[in-house]
Simulated scan of single mutants.
Amino acid sequence: MGKWIEEQLEMWAEDEERPFVFDKFNLNQLDIDEEGILFATYRPESYGEVLFEFFFDVQEDNSLRAEF
C-alpha cells in the first residue's frame, strides 16, 4: 500500500505541477463509530487538502479490512 500511495502522490504532482505529501496525522481527520471498534474513516491531507478516504472496518472473523 505504501508504494501505491507514493506513486499516486508522484502522479498527482506531475499532473498538477505542484507537490503532494501526506500531512502529519491529524486526529480530526479520523471518524470512529460510536462503539469505537466497528469502523472508521480517515481522510489524509496534503497541505490541508483532503486527498481521499480510507475506510476501515472489522469483519466477522475479527480481521481488519481497508478500502480506498
Rank of each mutant, 00 (worst) to 15 (best):
M1Q: 07
M1C: 09
M1N: 08
M1F: 15
M1I: 08
M1S: 13
K3H: 15
K3M: 03
K3P: 10
W4S: 13
W4G: 14
W4Y: 12
W4F: 15
I5Y: 06
I5L: 15
I5M: 08
E6N: 11
E6C: 12
E7L: 15
E7Q: 14
L9G: 07
L9R: 00
E10N: 13
E10D: 15
E10R: 14
M11A: 13
W12R: 03
W12H: 04
W12K: 03
A13K: 04
A13Y: 02
E14Y: 12
E14L: 10
D15K: 14
D15C: 06
E16C: 06
E16S: 05
E16R: 11
P19H: 05
F20V: 01
F22Y: 07
F22P: 04
D23P: 07
K24W: 05
K24I: 07
F25G: 10
F25D: 00
L27Q: 03
L27N: 03
L27V: 11
N28P: 11
N28Q: 14
N28H: 08
N28D: 12
Q29N: 12
L30T: 01
L30S: 07
I32T: 09
I32Y: 02
D33L: 00
E34N: 00
E35L: 00
G36M: 02
G36N: 01
I37W: 08
L38I: 02
L38A: 01
F39Y: 08
F39H: 04
F39W: 12
A40Q: 02
A40V: 02
T41I: 12
T41K: 14
R43M: 11
R43Y: 03
P44Q: 02
E45V: 11
S46H: 02
Y47K: 00
G48T: 01
G48K: 01
G48A: 06
E49R: 08
E49Q: 04
E49H: 12
V50N: 11
V50T: 10
V50S: 13
L51S: 05
L51G: 08
L51E: 03
F52Y: 11
E53Q: 14
E53N: 15
E53I: 03
F54D: 00
F54H: 11
F54W: 10
F54I: 03
F54G: 05
F54K: 06
F55Y: 15
F55K: 08
F56G: 05
D57N: 12
D57S: 15
V58Q: 08
V58K: 14
Q59C: 09
Q59Y: 06
Q59R: 09
E60V: 11
E60Y: 14
E60F: 13
E60T: 04
E60P: 09
D61W: 10
D61K: 10
D61Q: 06
N62P: 01
N62G: 02
N62M: 11
S63T: 05
S63V: 03
S63F: 12
S63R: 10
L64Y: 00
L64H: 01
R65I: 04
F68Q: 08
F68C: 14
F68P: 07
